[in-house]
Structure formats: structure tokens, C-alpha cells
């Protein structure tokens, strides 16, 4: 089983988002492997341990993403590649992945259902279509049965079970696997694992992020006494107008 896992490098999910000069204010922000990508990585490592094979991890990012890439290697990926570019939009990232993966005979390309910073959730579908491979998202379970992959895809109010041959692309989410925490041996070994740096290909027709805005501040929370639920219902009906 030859697996490519694509990871994003995103602000920790507890980050208070602020912008300076129309860019994310990264002062004091801890960057992590995208939480959804982390699920994909964990499942890829489990599949490798069971079925044999290799896990390659890919990130489109500048050198400052290498701590996340090293962590992915410590978790169990065998080698890594960093496409040396600022990931400007989904199409740009997808084309880098496709350029790298197109002649490498991967059985599957896994990634998160979306990055938790830009949330487009487009890269798996773009990569699938560009490679003419099936794409499945959001995948909440993935099992390998010979040459068939069996997945659960979340739909409104439940999930569907699907089967697909290889190769395919999946955008993953919990509970596909438990996040893995690297152990000391993994961290030591990760230092010696290969991390190739590749220059990006040019991409036409990309979108550009001009500016950002924060949601309006919430007003003061109006407290209602626990014994006065009639009052709460009255407020929801007459003031908030949602009943």
C-alpha cells in the first residue's frame, strides 16, 4: 500500500484570530498539523502497519511548516516532501499535489476534509478530478479489503457505506482514527527521515484573498433566573423573535 498524506499547517484550534495588515496576526500563535489532516495521517499509519507499504507526507508551505512535517514523520510517515510555496488557494495547492503524485503510483491520497484555516474543503475533489480518480469526502471510516477500499462517508443525518477500487482520494474526518501522539523513538527517527524540498509549478486562474474581517462582537449576554423560564420564553418570542 503506497499512501500519500497531504497535510496543512494551521493555527492551533484555540487561537484567537486577529489580523494585521490584512494577514493573520501570527504573533504567539502555535501552528499545528491541520486537525482533519491529522486524522488522515493517523489512519494512513494504521493501514501501513496492517497492510505494509509506505506513507509519504506532503505539505505545500514555506520552511516554517517543517516542525509540522517532522511531527508527521515522528507519528509514522516514512518520508516527506515540502512544496516550497505559500499555499495561496485550493487550486494552487491541488495542482502542486497532482504534479508531485501523478507519476508515483500511489494507491490512495488522503487528507483532511478541509483545512481548519481556510475551510474550503476543495483540495480532495480538485486532486481527484485532475487525476481522474474517484474522490470521497468526508470519510469517517476507511478499511482496506484486498484491492477494495471500504469507506463510510458522512451525509446529512447519518452515513453511507461505499466501496471503491484503487487509486482514490479521500478527505477524512473523525472518527476515522484516533490522533497519534509521537513517542520519543518516533521523534528521534523523524530527524533522519528524508524530507525533500521541491519548487512549485505555476498555476493560472487562482483566486486571491484581498482582505479579512472579524464577525461583529456579541452583545452582552442577558441572564435569566433559573426559576423564570416563562421570562426566557417571552424574550425568545418577543425580543429575539425566534419562537
Amino acid at each position: 500500500m503506497k499512501i500519500l498524506v497531504c497535510i496543512s499547517n494551521v493555527p492551533d484550534t484555540t487561537t484567537k484570530i486577529k489580523f494585521v495588515d490584512n494577514k493573520l496576526d501570527t504573533k504567539g500563535v502555535q501552528f499545528i498539523i491541520g486537525p482533519y489532516d491529522d486524522f488522515a495521517l493517523a489512519r494512513a499509519v494504521e493501514i501501513k502497519e496492517k497492510e505494509g507499504g509506505t506513507v509519504t507526507v506532503l505539505n505545500v508551505g514555506l520552511a516554517d511548516t517543517e516542525p509540522s512535517i517532522r511531527k508527521a514523520l515522528a507519528i509514522g510517515a516514512d518520508d516527506a516532501v515540502r512544496i516550497n510555496a505559500e499555499p495561496t488557494d485550493s487550486l494552487f495547492v491541488a495542482k502542486q499535489i497532482v504534479e508531485y503524485a501523478k507519476d508515483k503510483d500511489f494507491d490512495m491520497i488522503l487528507m483532511g476534509r478541509e483545512s481548519s484555516d481556510f475551510n474550503s474543503g476543495l483540495v480532495h475533489g480538485l486532486v481527484g478530478e485532475l487525476l481522474s480518480w474517484p474522490s470521497i469526502a468526508p470519510a469517517m471510516r476507511l478499511d482496506i479489503d484486498g484491492s477494495t477500499a471500504k469507506l463510510h462517508r458522512e451525509i446529512e443525518g447519518g452515513h453511507e457505506e461505499v466501496e471503491v477500487g484503487m487509486p482514490f482520494v479521500a478527505g477524512c474526518q473523525e472518527p476515522i482514527a484516533e490522533w497519534k501522539i509521537p513517542n520519543m523513538r518516533g521523534i528521534m527517527m523523524a530527524r533522519k527521515k528524508p524530507l525533500a524540498v521541491i519548487e512549485p509549478v505555476g498555476v493560472d486562474g487562482v483566486t486571491s484573498y484581498d482582505s479579512f474581517e472579524l464577525p461583529p462582537e456579541k452583545g452582552e449576554c442577558k441572564m435569566v433566573d433559573a426559576a423564570q423560564m416563562d421570562e426566557l420564553v417571552g424574550l425568545l418570542k418577543n425580543e429575539a423573535r425566534v419562537l
Binding site: N119, T207, S208, Y209, D210, F212, E213, P215
Partner: peptide, 16 residues
């Protein structure tokens, strides 16, 4: 205008 940072912000995106 699109939602980014998981509901914590919005971005204005130029489409070619």
C-alpha cells in the same frame, strides 16, 4: 465574502 478560520473570520476573495 466567505467564511474562514472555522467561523472565526470572513475573507474577501477576488475571483478571476
Amino acid at each position: 465574502k466567505r467564511g474562514v478560520f472555522t467561523g472565526k473570520a470572513f475573507a474577501f476573495v477576488s475571483v478571476p
